[in-house]
Design a binder for these strands. Structure first.
Lengths: 249, 249
DNA sequence: GCCGATTTGTGCGTATGTATG
DNA sequence: TCATACATACGCACAAATCGG
């Protein structure tokens, strides 16, 4: 089922072909986006104050505030209290927040959304295996090895290592010519870490095995062996998937 | 005109451990989300009016409106003018809008974001090949065949077929046990169709070849042949990818 | 088809907290 | 410390849209 009449890309004019009227704050948001594009502003650049935007766009403060709020949600703009409004970094935080809420909303199967997210991470890691090993073949990556070492150390002491885990996976995908994949996987990882505590479930995993699988992935990539890399990826996801499967039934 | 101005003598919530203050509308949005979860509301259910939310949450209407605007952007709630506020259908429209804007923002390489999106669609279609053919093996799917027929007919007459194309791909992935994949691919498709006109590029593709590749994908899936399916997928994306590569040069 | 009740959309004035100089 | 600029927040009045009688 698809959302019938929605206009994801936005529109500069106030009406759409169907004849339906668009709320003013929607068009105001689009006009602010057009302003950013027209001025060629980049992430971090300063935007006009709300008052200036009101005058420039000919709308009220309430209107620009709601438009700015919408753009803030999408990380297209970023507001700092008492300082000003800036162009945002275009992160995928909106996707994260959306998926997190859906993950805790689904009533019947609490873990379905979480399983789907992890399944998608596994799928992408496997699908990118060739490209990753091609990018890492014959290279040395001290920063990634340091992350693995840190993860192993924390695993042996029984403490989790969420930050290193995320940095490792995004570090692997950062070498690709497709930056969207890395950002998506990072977003899915954020969904994972945000949903788990909200569900009140303790997903116990084999920390040491997970940590060592990271090292195996990195070595396989540097050795240029796609098959070994895929095997390490599968091993890496085994603990968390088994933990979820046990809880599901 | 002094009216009841609540004094924040005791802040109930709104401060984060770091000491930094959290904007009120952020906490208001979270409280609305908590209300939805607490009441067990499902997509389409009616929410209290803005006035009732103001009273219930103890904040002003402006604040409620900004919070609702944020939730509207994420498709967590849906507002209908003069009717009411409802729980949204949790689509990935926010992701679409975010990616579309980023796609047109990148200054140097206009088509990079578009190429990444299409590359990701291709990757997901290929990665899901086994599961798709497993789901379709030995089945008959008149509605998908009808879509293919429609696409071929439009292709021979020289007209594009965006709606049928999208419906076909999401229809294939709808059979999977992972609904997130289908929604993601649909979102990427929307990004594609929204970005192309904004960039002012006419991505000329071989319509007939694309249309026939859809039929080949469906038949391969029904025949239970993953390799044939993957080949059809690759053929399907060839025209658009070549068109993009030529433009990128 | 009109009317009125309900609900969201918009504009405006004002007060407050915060960062900068 | 004070002054200025700005974002944040509140409250009200009116406009526009929707639905039911």
């Amino acid at each position: 089922m698809r959302t019938a009449n929605r206009r994801p890309g936005g529109r500069s004019a106030g009406v759409k072909p169907g004849g339906r009227a668009a709320p003013r704050h929607e068009t105001t948001a689009d006009r602010i986006k057009d302003y950013i594009l027209g001025e060629g502003l980049q992430p971090g650049d300063l935007l006009p104050t709300e008052a200036e935007l009101c005058e420039h766009l000919g709308v009220s403060r309430s209107n620009v505030r709601e438009a700015v709020r919408q753009l803030t949600t999408l990380d297209i703009v970023e507001v700092r209290h008492g300082h000003g409004t800036f162009v945002g970094n275009m992160s995928l935080d909106a996707l994260v927040e959306s998926l997190v809420f859906r993950g805790v909303l689904v009533p019947g199967d609490d873990l379905r959304a979480l399983r789907e997210v992890i399944d998608l991470r596994l799928t992408l890691d496997l699908a990118m295996a060739e490209r990753i090993v091609d990018a890492f073949r014959g290279t040395t990556n001290p920063e990634l090895h340091a992350l693995v070492k840190e993860m192993v150390a924390k695993a042996t002491s029984g403490s989790p290592f969420p930050d290193e885990d995320r940095a490792f996976h995004t570090g692997l995908l950062a070498r690709l010519d497709n930056s969207l994949v890395g950002q998506l996987v990072g977003a899915f990882w954020d969904v994972h870490t945000a949903v788990v505590p909200k569900l009140g479930v303790s997903v116990a995993v084999d920390l040491e095995r997970t940590a060592r699988a990271h090292g195996e992935m990195l070595e396989a990539a540097e050795a240029g062996d796609p098959e070994r890399f895929r095997l390490a990826v599968t091993t890496h996801y085994e603990p968390i998937q088994r933990s979820l499967d046990e809880r599901a039934k």
